[in-house]
Write a protein that binds this DNA or RNA. Structure first.
Lengths: 114, 114
DNA sequence: TGGACCTACCTTGCGTCGCAAGGTACTGTG
DNA sequence: CACAGTACCTTGCGACGCAAGGTAGGTCCA
């Protein structure tokens, strides 16, 4: 750390995978699309070298499933969608996140030590 | 990952150090005290093996300074306090945190893909 | 036809950091 | 003098973000 410019890098840890799960919750998406989509969020921008391994982990964890689909123009795409385990994990995260967020707000928010 | 029980472990990453900075913002504290204090927060509990190296990093980064103080009973304690760089970093984090929190809320919060 | 370019996927190597476990040392107590 | 309590720190491991590098399918146009 000690470098302010990398602050959001470490902030992402722990939330990024659930942001990805959320992105494929409503509709299937493919890797490059997810990279671009996250790139639009300054706080979440992550390169291919982050996202592809992340997607593989989520697939191995059984939270995502994938299928190959031919592209209208270009190489085939691997589309990802949520499994039912993935939905459970995401739901659980939403609960955890609210609790965690409140704790940080309380402790860090004002400088008032709890 | 893939283990729900370690969810908050990775959530802590990136915020833990600023929680520590916040804890010593209003008054100097020593390592063991910080460990115990964080232990009271289920979302932030971290052991000595996490906190002591963290405190060393923050000291090397110039965000914390420390002084040895004799204990009324027991071995001497190393008390930590914020440097002016530390105050700046903490202030910067507070801004980043609000922005980050909102982004995650928006993306993950409802399942509505932004 | 073949070269340039875009898209899309994935891997390698490195650095950081949380953490369990282990280690040292000072102090007070029976 | 052993023992327990407090307080500090280090070691080794695993997880993961990331820059950089690598492969390959598709399109365009001379």
């Amino acid at each position: 750390m000690a470098d302010v410019s990398q602050l959001s890098t470490s902030l992402r840890r722990g939330t990024l995978e659930f942001c990805v799960l959320s992105l494929v919750e409503l509709e299937d998406r493919y890797g490059n699309e997810i990279v671009r989509r996250l790139g639009e969020e300054p706080n979440l921008a992550a390169g291919e070298g982050t996202i592809y391994p992340l997607l593989s982990r989520l697939r191995r964890s059984g939270w995502l499933e994938s299928k190959w689909v031919e592209s209208p123009s270009g190489p085939p795409r691997r589309y990802y969608g949520l499994t039912s385990d993935g939905r459970s994990a995401l739901a659980h995260f939403r609960t955890e996140w609210v609790s965690f967020r409140q704790t940080v707000d309380r402790l860090v928010g004002t400088g008032e030590a709890a």
